[in-house]
Amino acid sequence: MNQPAPVVLGTPPGGRRDPLADLDAHASTPDGRVGVRIRGRSSLTVTLAPGYYDQVTETELSRQLTQLARLAFVQRTRAYYELRSRAFGRTVTRESSSYGARDLSFTAGRASIVASGSSPDGRIRVTAAGMESWTVDLEPGTLAAYDEAGFCAAVAAAGHDLIEDQFRQIRRLKDEIYG
């Protein structure tokens, strides 16, 4: 059997780079007890106020993380438009409002996307419907299963998973609508 020859396209000058590499957004809950930093395409770092992990309940932490996710999305969107403004050399603050039929289909389809992500062990699950409605579910016993650092890493992994899921679904939707 003859193996077909690989297609040779060459590499970009200066090497390959994540176009969102310079994205950097921070958010924290109003009481400052839970924070997150989003860098690049989907890298997250989650932090808790000192001592908070030892006293908080799973219900309360779930509520805080849900709130944080919503705030983080707002900050990420802002950082994204700043990055896009730099990339195109002109200020961009929102999408255009002049939509054609395909754009309307896209925005409607995007609003109906339900993206989700979970920690590697499945104890922590993050869901976003249309990037508007957020939920962070912690399986009972989650706090006991992790130490603070492990918990933060698991939440970050779930968030990363959700972002990548959203990217995948967006790509599929764009291919479907725009060809």
Binding site: Y80, V92, S96, I170
Partner: peptide, 24 residues
């Protein structure tokens, strides 16, 4: 600018927002 914007637009097609820009 046209060349630069085209390269940038090709890089950002995967973004969650609409991939739109303008040329002055």
């Amino acid at each position: 600018q046209i060349a630069e914007d085209t390269l940038t637009a090709l890089e950002h097609m995967d973004d969650c927002g609409k991939n739109e820009w303008s040329m002055a």
